[in-house]
Design a protein around this nucleic acid. Structure first.
Lengths: 205, 205, 205, 205
DNA sequence: CATGAATGAGCTTTCATTCAT
DNA sequence: CATGAATGAAAGCTCATTCAT
């Protein structure tokens, strides 16, 4: 968490710093990102930066938190009453929100990718502080309930499929970031629908 | 490629160096890996290491090559006549060989994971020398042929599914490396079969 | 060019660094000069030196610039209106200023000598940034004008004599640095006058 | 001096080594010259080279000696009876032989230039072992005798002119190596004659 | 709240020389 | 006489972090 001083800053300055930091961690992964470059680009002194943040990790942490907060905005209203919908609708909404998020926030997309690059590092664990497999948990519960409701087959390896369904979302995002691009939102929805249908065929009861 | 001197070394010493280097690149990614640590752990002088290898990248390259060579051994005989088998059999063999490889060579598994961490770096490209998405290509052709043979639906987004099928293999490997473990080979085969069935349901014609 | 930080330093510290650097490049040529030795002798940390200067070349560049600036102070007022004087007067002034400069700044003399040792290197060219034979050009024009004014013979190989007259100055400086010494300024002037007379006899019209 | 082993070598091998060493010290100065490169280019082992020569300096020494021996061959027969000729004839012969030597042995020319680059180093002194200013001595005696014979003015600063006349030869060689080139031997002689006349006008009695 | 100089362990790489075989 | 593996000090340079002002 940034120190109090950071939040006492005039919004303009704070926003500039956030912008610079965002650019830095979008262009470089955690290790390659440079505190020197940040202060230079933000036009502030090193000492100042260290009065706003504990250390490099803290800066990163803050950025990832910001990204997470932003991502939440994309979560479909459908997710507010998950029990009202079948699992395929829910997964569809998750995929769509995930894709829309990175398409509308390409820098966050890049940061997310860079973040994944350090998935095996201490820093990653620290930033996720134990939530490492929160997504896993979420999908696991989703699948378990779907089994109960008879929506999907009961003989699946739930933990594995939970992991895979989460991972597929990430992978699909990487695919569309790296190799393809959506012409418009309709195309995006269509693509997701095809994939959801694929999933459905694969696992439905 | 290591220099001649490396191959002239007594096997024992060479193996020790390989072991130390393997450990280093299993524990750290390319950037974090330290030549200093390697020479210390191998009990050799800095000068010696640089008489065996051109530079750090050369060491890494050699290790990745070694891994690739080892991995090839796991490729199923089925893959020698791919046209004799349907796509699901082929994908199954690929998944099985991939999983077996990392389960029987956990250090290589770690190295492979670390290697993926630098997927967006120059070093990665250099080591892959342009073959960056050879896997993608492979799966694309596989899918195209399967469409021709009427094994899978013709309305799929081939490039995307090619990417996803490759990625799923990697993800499954990561899952079993990080969270689960196979009791025995039967369990492994069973797991893969479930997944292949899932795939089959999803995309077969 | 040193970074801003260098010029922000207390004069005392800056002067100490300049002194140490001067000594280093007076005692060793560019390659043999050691950044390690500089920081040790200056009693500063490596990191600090690299906050003052870009790199080793930057340190050297700065020193050569300093020397050049200092040398300019020695240039005779006579040179401000070159057309008011005959060529022998001008050459005399140049020789005198060159000699006085190194005699009064022996360290710069040493640095100049060391600088000449790398005359065929890339670093030399970079530091001179293309002005490699500015001196040659200068003397060439001087000689051409003198031919026009009928001060010297018109059958001379101008480029060669231009080169030689410049070189003789350097050589004379080396001679008095290495083997001889002037008792006083009168002796210096006398010596130069003898040499100029020699030159005059040799080339005047 | 090379060790006995070097001279026991088959002439062919010895010559190859000499050629490689010549190329190395023509292309690089003493410091930059690399023992590694020499053994590689000569196709011999490091151990062997160190059985032929004491160390790097010894190799260099040997090469400079070889060059000196070769240079002697160019000395005009006129120099065998110096007292039969006036000083200007003698100097002329020296200049001509010096120029011819480097023109016909460009590699030695390069080596000579590289050798001059370390004029202020310990290695230079060691290689010249005290003969540092043998050339100076030579010209000094020449000038003294010429004064006695009434060939040149008696009021000259003999040591300085001795130094300068030697240096001019070197400088002229550098000029023709770096900037100009002789069409033929006639042109060379003509150029030297012009310079000698210049000298003559300058210092004759 | 701002500053920016100071730090120093760490990085990868080079090289002439030795010596056991 | 030939070999070539071993050496290790030294090179130039980077970087997140601290702290006195």
């Amino acid at each position: 968490m940034p120190k109090e001083t950071f939040f006492n800053l005039p919004a303009e300055k704070r926003d500039l710093i956030i912008k610079v930091v965002t650019d830095e961690f979008a262009a470089f992964n955690y290790e390659q990102a440079s505190v020197n470059r940040i202060v230079t680009n933000a036009g502030i002194s090193k000492g100042s930066l260290y009065q706003y943040f504990e250390d490099k990790r803290d800066i990163y942490q803050y950025l990832i938190d910001l990204m997470t907060k932003e991502k939440v905005k994309y979560v479909s209203p459908v997710m507010q009453n998950p029990e009202d919908h079948d699992i395929f609708t829910l997964i569809r909404e998750l995929y769509v929100s995930g894709l829309r998020f990175v398409l509308e926030n390409p820098k966050f997309g890049a940061i997310g990718k860079r973040f994944m690059e350090i998935k095996n590092s201490v820093v990653y664990d620290e930033i996720m502080h134990g939530n490492r497999d929160a997504a896993n948990q979420f999908f696991r519960i989703l699948l378990e309930k779907a089994v109960d409701k008879g929506e999907i087959r009961s003989d699946l390896d739930i933990p594995m499929f939970a992991y895979m369904i989460g991972a597929m979302n990430t992978q699909m995002i990487e695919y569309f970031t790296d190799f393809e691009t959506f012409e418009d939102d309709d195309k995006l929805l269509e693509t997701v629908d095809i994939f959801i249908e694929f999933l459905k065929n694969g696992i439905e009861a």
